[in-house]
Simulated assay, not measured.
Amino acid sequence: MIAVKISSKKDFMAKLLTTELFDSYYVEEATIETFNTFNIDGHINRDFYKNDDLEDESAVPDEYSKWSELRTLCFDLIKGKRTPLGFKFILHPDNETKNRIVESAGAGLAPSDVLLGINIRFTGDTIIITTGTAFKIFSFDKTIEKAWDEYIPSFMSHSGIDTTDYD
């Protein structure tokens, strides 16, 4: 697990809320504190789709909503003259990115046995991004966690997002 502090809040928020940069990420949870506290559970309610004529399992939505589906809603809740009191987004990489990271780590685990995530948290005047790795099976091997911890700063840098280490 690593934690990085966003150097330019305005630039990061513009990229998070108005570009497609994070659109492929899955949203586990979004909490936005303004005049009310808004909680979004990103888990897909499969019963919502039960009357659709889905021909095969591949047409069934994923476990979580994509950021692309919730981004404008979150933007609408955040925008305005007043800065939010806080927010928290828990995101997971898309399956292609996750598979690439898990396989490149060479730990011999299936991508389905691993959950990779980032927490994006704003409190006061600071945005902190924290990485997290969870395993569905027991493993002493930390190579996947290390690969994820290396990926996020690289992704941020490649995306033009300046960060500093957070203690």
Rank of each mutant, 00 (worst) to 15 (best):
K50W: 07
Y49I: 15
D52T: 06
D141C: 10
N39P: 00
S8P: 00
W148Q: 06
D167E: 14
K142L: 05
F138Y: 12
W67P: 04
I32M: 06
T19M: 02
S65G: 01
A110C: 11
Y151A: 02
L116C: 03
I120S: 05
E29C: 04
S112K: 04
H158W: 09
D23L: 09
C74A: 14
F122C: 07
L115E: 06
T31R: 14
H92P: 00
T18L: 04
D52S: 13
G108V: 10
L16A: 13
P111R: 04
G132H: 09
T164N: 08
T143M: 11
F38W: 12
S157Q: 12
R121D: 13
N39R: 14
A110N: 15
K81C: 09
Y151S: 10
K142Y: 00
V27R: 02
K9G: 10
T31E: 15
T131L: 05
L70R: 06
D113W: 03
H158C: 00
D162H: 13
E96K: 08
Y64H: 07
K50H: 03
E28F: 07
E63L: 11
I6G: 01
G42M: 00
E103F: 03
V27S: 07
D113S: 14
T130L: 06
S65V: 05
L17G: 03
V114G: 00
I120D: 06
D94S: 09
G42C: 06
D52Q: 12
I78R: 00
P61F: 03
D62V: 03
L115A: 07
P61I: 00
N95K: 14
Y26M: 08
D62C: 00
R121I: 15
F35E: 08
F135N: 09
F38V: 14
I2F: 02
D113M: 09
A105K: 03
N95M: 11
Y26F: 13
W148L: 05
A147S: 14
G117Y: 05
G132P: 04
P61A: 11
S159F: 13
I120M: 06
Y25R: 05
D141M: 08
I2T: 06
I128P: 05
D167I: 07
Y49C: 06
T83D: 12
K81W: 09
G117N: 12
K136G: 11
D52E: 15
G124M: 06
I6R: 00
I32H: 01
E103A: 11
K66R: 14
D113F: 06
T97W: 01
E150D: 15
T133E: 10
V60R: 08
K142C: 02
K98Q: 12
F155I: 10
F22N: 01
D141Q: 08
T133N: 08
W67G: 08
S24N: 12
F48R: 04
I118V: 15
K15R: 14
D47W: 07
